[in-house]
Design a protein around this nucleic acid. Structure first.
Lengths: 198, 198
DNA sequence: GGGTAGTATGTGGTCACTCACTTACTTTAG
DNA sequence: CTAAAGTAAGTGAGTGACCACATACTACCC
């Protein structure tokens, strides 16, 4: 038996690679301009080969949303469940995680959300609604644990907190400014939390 | 001479109507899904007729951006130039105007911004960058007039203030909630300004 | 030698845009 | 006043490019 052969069973195979490359394409060019041809070229196969692994383009997009959800929402759920943190600390860590994700993925979460909200794929819109709903729900319930929220209702606070990553996503996509981005992720985010929550 | 004949010279003709109908289509279905066919159907002519008035689809989209700019940015410039208002009042009015526009146009400004940031039409991306740049610039210079901005640099404050309309746009598009929207436009916006500016 | 991954080559449909021609007005010349 | 000329707006039938997806065939690996 060939022990030197490194099976790639956990670092999963083509399927994962296809999603990876698609992720990169969407990050640079967005949803609307994505073509099966581009994915195939980037993976280094022909279009037909993609259909060995996914039944349709929509299936690839849905897998991409899963990926995004894992990267954005899963860590946020963990932070929210961490009982070592005060509500304020939770909000701060969530905000920081969201902002970091926005920067690393070139604003993908927010832009996906808005592009997908127009998609003709019903399933995609449903998933995006769910994602946003979960996100706001998590922030809302933390807001309820928090002492004072400066008179904002929990839902209102949740929307306010979504605002910073949303604004950062838009400005950094169109007017990149690394120094500004770092200030926003760091001190600005922290102080912003300080203003709206005790 | 027929005095009762109401010439329609100022309420301009087809061209304006085409932009109006396109505006409605984009508001409901977004940029990416827009087809010349749909515009023609909505105006009540054939596709060919559209090309009497605009040389290309892109030209229609650019005219649409002009329309959006007139609706969003022009009033904001006026508010900023109104010397009867304190800086804080200016920020408050600008924020309210932006939020109202977002609600009336079903989140169009923000979503246009993100969809267009991926467009293959270079000119469109340039225009969107300019629009965002102007918007942030106006807020920035008001921030400079303001006494205290709670330690935020002017540019940082501008991004923070963009956040609320951005978040409202996303949530209202995907999870419409009229009562929440009204609270956000009214008391929440006012209180938010109170927090970040003196 | 059978299943998996791949290629080469379609195919039907859609889209922005074109074009020859018509229709309804308006302007102008005699 | 009228007929000829000019023009703005529109029609309907393309056209070529592109795209998601399909089908037939092939290389490779246990």
């Amino acid at each position: 038996m060939n022990t030197s052969r490194n099976r790639p069973p956990l670092a999963p195979p083509r399927k994962e690679e296809i999603i990876d490359r698609t992720f990169e394409l969407v990050r640079e060019r967005g949803f609307a301009g994505l073509r099966m041809r581009q994915i195939a070229d980037k993976v280094g196969v022909t279009e037909g080969a993609l259909y060995r692994h996914f039944p349709s383009k929509e299936a690839i997009l849905l897998a991409l949303v899963d990926r995004m959800e894992g990267r954005l929402l899963a860590p946020i759920r963990q932070i929210a469940a961490n009982s070592d943190l005060s509500p304020k600390q939770k909000l701060e860590e969530i905000l920081r995680h969201h902002l970091l994700t926005v920067i690393e993925t070139r604003s993908l979460p927010i832009l996906l959300l808005s592009e997908a909200s127009f998609s003709e794929h019903e399933e995609l819109r449903v998933r995006m609604r769910r994602l946003l709903s979960s996100y706001l729900g998590i922030l809302e319930s933390i807001a309820r644990e928090t002492g004072t929220t400066k008179g904002f209702a929990p839902r209102e606070l949740a929307v306010l907190l979504l605002g910073l990553p949303a604004a950062v996503a838009l400005t950094q996509r169109l007017l990149p400014d690394e120094a500004l981005a770092e200030r926003l992720i760091g001190p600005v985010a922290a102080q912003f939390i300080g203003l709206v929550a005790e």
